[in-house]
């Protein structure tokens, strides 16, 4: 059986090397290679690696996504304060430029690493991985990954997080889930932020947010929260605590290795 005279061809495998077959190679050296893998395989591979890091250190990683100015940084600060009695919080913060948000979060006493993406409109798994090297995950229980303010691109990149959270402030339209369906349909929880301003924006209807999420076949909880009013954060914080508590013990998943 050899590749020279064709005696290795059988009725069973002949179709593979004939025109249209996966192993077809013309005399001119032309070959068609069947691949079928994720277009973002590089990113997905790195995201899986990040996920292993989080599991090994028993870290709950939460991807926060919203338009710019919806209150992600304020939510990180307020959530860290609310969890200060039991959970250690850290943050990775993405912006095109400046260290402003990380500095602000550090001033609130929370470990934070800034990622400057230059021109990139989203975080990817490699950027998050590099940032993790600047952080001691052994000293972290909940890691907020504050994505670049953008309701489009962040939805396409897995970072290795366990939870995706979408924020929408009352000063924005309540039709945001309908306008940005790719991001909102995959959110594990939706937070309506700046609820303290709701009285000034009577046109914002939280019921419509829920209705539009239902249209996207996403029945996740929607909370109205205000980072200035810690009492409003209760259900959100309870949800984070429950997810953290449900994580397997550190190393458990890797014990078999």
């Amino acid at each position: 059986m050899c590749d020279t005279c064709g005696c290795n061809l059988t009725p069973g495998n002949r179709a593979l090397v004939e025109p249209g077959g996966h192993l077809h190679r013309t005399p001119g050296g032309h070959e068609s290679v069947h691949v079928l893998e994720g277009l973002l395989a590089e990113n997905d591979h790195q995201a899986a690696h990040n996920r292993e890091h989080f599991a090994r250190h028993r870290v709950l990683a939460v991807n926060l996504m919203s338009s710019p100015g919806a209150g992600k940084t304020a939510l990180v600060e307020a959530s860290a304060r609310a969890m200060a009695d039991g959970l250690r919080v850290a943050a990775v913060v993405g912006d095109l430029a400046t260290e402003n948000d990380a500095r602000r979060i550090r001033e609130a006493g929370i470990e934070a690493v800034q990622i400057c993406t230059d021109t990139a409109c989203h975080l990817d798994a490699h950027m998050v991985h590099d940032a993790l090297h600047a952080m001691d995950l052994e000293a972290v229980d909940v890691l907020f990954i504050e994505n670049v303010g953008n309701l489009v691109c962040p939805a396409s990149f897995d970072l290795g997080q366990q939870l995706d959270v979408a924020l929408l402030s009352v000063t924005e339209g309540d039709d945001k889930p309908a306008k940005y369906p790719v991001l909102f349909r995959a959110a594990d929880r939706v937070l309506v932020t700046k609820a303290d301003l709701a009285e000034h924006f009577p046109e914002f209807d939280r019921g419509r947010v829920e209705h539009r999420l239902a249209e996207l076949a996403n029945a996740v909880p929607v909370d109205a929260v205000s980072s200035r009013e810690p009492a409003t954060l209760g259900p959100w914080i309870d949800w984070l605590r429950a997810h953290w508590s449900a994580l397997p013990a550190a190393g458990e998943r890797f014990a078999a290795r």
Binding site: H30, V33, E37
Partner: peptide, 8 residues
């Protein structure tokens, strides 16, 4: 979002 085939 798949890479299905390449021709070389």
């Amino acid at each position: 979002l798949l890479l299905t085939e390449i021709e070389v």
